[in-house]
Simulated scan of single mutants.
Amino acid sequence: MGRQEEVILEMKDVKVHFHLDEGVLKAVDGVDLRIKRGKTLGIVGESGCGKSVTSQALLRIVPKPGEVQGKILLYRGGKDGTDEPVDLVKLDPRGKQIRDIRGGEIAMIFQEPMKAFSPIHTIGNQIIEAILLHTTDDKEEAYRLGVNILQKVGMSNPEQRMGEYPHQLSGGMRQRAMIAMALSCNPSILIADEPTTALDVTVQAQVLQLINDLKEKSDTAVIFITHDLGVIAEMSDDVAVMYLGKVVEYTDVDTLFHAPKHPYTKALLNSIPSVSMEKKRLESIEGTVPFPMNLPQGCGFYSRCKHAVDGVCNAADVPLVEVAAGHHVRCLMVESERTEQEVEA
C-alpha cells in the first residue's frame, strides 16, 4: 500500500493555540490523524474537545489570535506537477495557494448553514461564485453546473432554488444547499462539521445517505465531525475520539464499538440508550471538560476518570500508544495491562 495511493491527508502533531492575556489556550494540542481516499474518518467527542477547531486548522481558517503548528500534509497525486505533499501549515492563510485548495480540493459543510450562507445573496449566486473560482470562467456553464449539483443533492425545483435566499428555504433544504456548494467543485476531501444538527430524524437520514452516496460515487475522503455515536457507527470507517484537544483513542469503527480501551470511550458508549436496557439508568460522565488553559500535567481525563491512579495518571503527560494493530490509545492503565500481558506470554 503506497502512502500516496491511499492516504490523501496526514496531520502530524498539529496544535492550535490561542495566545491570550490570561495565558495560552490549547484548543488542539498535538493531533495525529490520517485521512484515506474514499473512506470516512469520524471525529467524536463532547462539546469543547477541539473537533471543529481541528477542521478549521485543515482549511487554515482559525480565527485570530489562533496559531497553527505542526504539519498538515496534503497528498495531491501530482496535481501541482510534483508528487511531494503540500504542508498546509506553511501556506499563507490568505495566499492564492491555500485559496485554490480551500473550497476546491478541501471543502466543508458547516454546522449551521443559516450562518454560513450570506443572507443578502441568493443560493445560486453563492454556488456559482465557488464554481467560477475553482472550475470554470464561463458563467452560463457555472449556472448549469449549479443547477445540476442542486439536483444531485435531491433539491426539488433546482432552477427556482437558485434564485431564492437562505431564509426562504427550510432547514433541510438549506443543509442540502450547503452540501451542494461544498461538492460543486468535486473536492478530494469533504469536511462535514455536524451536518445534521437541528434537523429532524427523517431529514437527518436523507442527508447522511446523500453524503455516503456521493462519497462512493466520487471516491471522496470524508471527515465527519459529530457528538452522536449512532451517526459515527453508520458513517465511519475509522474513528478518532477527542478529549481536551487530544486524540485519546483512534481505531476502526468495529473495534471502537466492540473493544474500546480508553475509559472516556467506554463511558461515552455506556451513555447510549438501548432497547434492552429496560428501566436501568444510563451511566453519566460526572464533571465537565476542563478549560484548556494552564492545565496540570497528566491525563486530561484524570479529574473525571473512575479508574485514575493518583501519582501515576497525573504525574506526566500521557502519549498515544499503539496497543494493537491500528488501535491507538492514550491511557497509562491500558498500556500497563498490555505490558503485563506481554510479560505473561
Rank of each mutant, 00 (worst) to 15 (best):
M1Y: 14
G2I: 08
E5P: 10
V14Q: 02
V24M: 06
K26C: 09
A27L: 04
D29Q: 11
R34L: 04
I35D: 07
I35V: 15
R37F: 00
K39C: 06
L41P: 01
S47Y: 03
G48E: 09
C49W: 03
G50Q: 03
A57Q: 06
I61D: 00
V62T: 06
P65R: 06
K71A: 11
P85A: 05
L88Q: 07
L88I: 07
P93A: 04
Q97Y: 02
G104E: 08
E105T: 13
H121R: 06
T122D: 03
T122F: 02
E129K: 12
L132V: 02
L132D: 00
L132T: 02
D138Y: 07
I149Q: 11
L150M: 09
G154Y: 08
G154K: 03
M155L: 13
P166W: 12
L169R: 05
G172D: 12
M178V: 12
I179P: 02
I179V: 15
N186T: 05
E194D: 11
P195L: 01
T197C: 10
L199V: 11
D200K: 15
V201W: 12
T202M: 14
V203K: 09
L208K: 13
Q209W: 10
D213F: 06
L214Q: 10
K215I: 08
D219E: 06
V222C: 10
T226A: 13
G230S: 13
M235H: 05
Y250S: 09
V253N: 06
D254C: 02
H258N: 15
V275I: 15
E278G: 00
K279C: 01
I285E: 08
E286W: 09
M293I: 15
L295K: 11
S303L: 07
G311S: 04
N314I: 05
D317G: 04
P319F: 12
V321Q: 10
G326S: 03
V329I: 08
C331T: 11
V334S: 14
E335Q: 15
R338G: 05
E340D: 12
A345R: 12
